[in-house]
Nucleic acid binder design. Structure first.
Length: 271
DNA sequence: AATAAATACAACCGCTCTTCT
DNA sequence: AAGAAGAGCGGTTGTATTTAT
């Protein structure tokens, strides 16, 4: 049995597309056989689900979608298919690829381990707010956009995601998800709520710098930060009272980081 | 201009869990 | 009840395209 592998041709695509259209999804081995495709059923299923299916969305991942992916990954980890359920038209494969190519790349450039606390904090307190800013800038009809980062991120994701269990106090991100997935990309009337968690993990992260120990400086330079930047941070950090982070502080933090981030411009896809 | 290196995305693989017969 | 087929998942690889040298 010669079973074809590798990229699908336009001809194979049209055969599979027509077959599924008239016979429906499922029973992929049989489908492959009776459609006359020299492909495994598994390959046909994947091709349909990830590419041919009319509902799959083509084109760049939007800012809103990026934000959603980051947030959901926080809560769910590498549960790509679960994440994909919140992004209509996007496949688990696509999201996984996005994560690996963009997010992991960013971590590499910052010399972070992608799972490290430092990188997670950077994403959460810098990258995501910055994304939000850009969303706000690009959808100027939305009067207020704000971020919701739950202060209790360590709780199981179900309580965030299962509507039956989400209490009002914990529903901020969920609400933003709903807004994002259902209407932000299409509508201009939705708002996303902002509540930055008052005392963040990142405070502790910066305490490290505050000690001004040489060793720790070296560690941080190893992570990709130059000495001048770190000195600025130290001065800045010392100026902060132990306590709440206000909006200005967050802005400052974002500015410190933002130069290190590149964000892809989302250009309308031509096809 | 040529080619090497990097990137992005599509597709595959091995495995588990579920459903069907 | 059990084995086979189907479906789904996450990780990895292959390849076409883009970018750098």
């Amino acid at each position: 049995m010669d079973v074809r592998k590798g990229p699908w041709t336009a001809e194979e695509d049209s055969i599979l597309f027509n077959y599924v259209n008239s016979h429906g999804e499922g029973r992929w081995n049989a489908a492959a056989r009776s459609a006359g495709l020299k492909r495994s059923g598994k390959s046909c299923r994947l091709r349909w689900l990830n590419y041919l299916r009319p509902s799959v969305k083509r084109g760049n991942i939007t800012l809103q979608e990026q934000l959603l992916i980051l947030d959901l990954h926080f809560q769910l980890g590498n549960r790509w298919s679960k994440i994909a359920r919140y992004l209509p038209g996007r496949t688990d494969n696509e999201i996984k690829n996005y994560w690996r190519t963009r997010v992991q790349k960013q971590a590499r450039q910052l010399k972070y381990d992608v799972n490290s606390k430092g990188f997670r904090d950077t994403m959460r307190y810098v990258w995501m707010p910055r994304l939000l800013e850009r969303i706000q800038a690009s959808t100027d009809s939305i009067p207020v956009i704000s971020i919701a980062i739950d202060s209790d991120v360590d709780q199981p994701p179900q309580s965030h995601l299962d509507p039956t269990h989400s209490s009002p106090s914990k529903s901020s991100w969920v609400n933003s998800h709903v807004a994002s997935t259902t209407s932000i990309s299409n509508s201009i009337s939705d708002q996303v709520q902002l509540q930055v968690s008052p005392v963040s993990d990142i405070v502790e992260n910066f305490k490290l710098i505050d000690t001004s120990e040489k060793d720790e400086m070296v560690v941080l330079t190893d992570q990709g930060y130059d000495r001048d930047t770190m000195n600025e941070w130290i001065g800045w950090e010392e100026s902060l009272e132990n306590g709440l982070w206000n909006e200005q502080d967050m802005l400052f933090l974002q500015q410190q980081f933002s130069a290190q981030f590149e964000f892809d411009d989302v250009t309308p896809n031509s096809n």
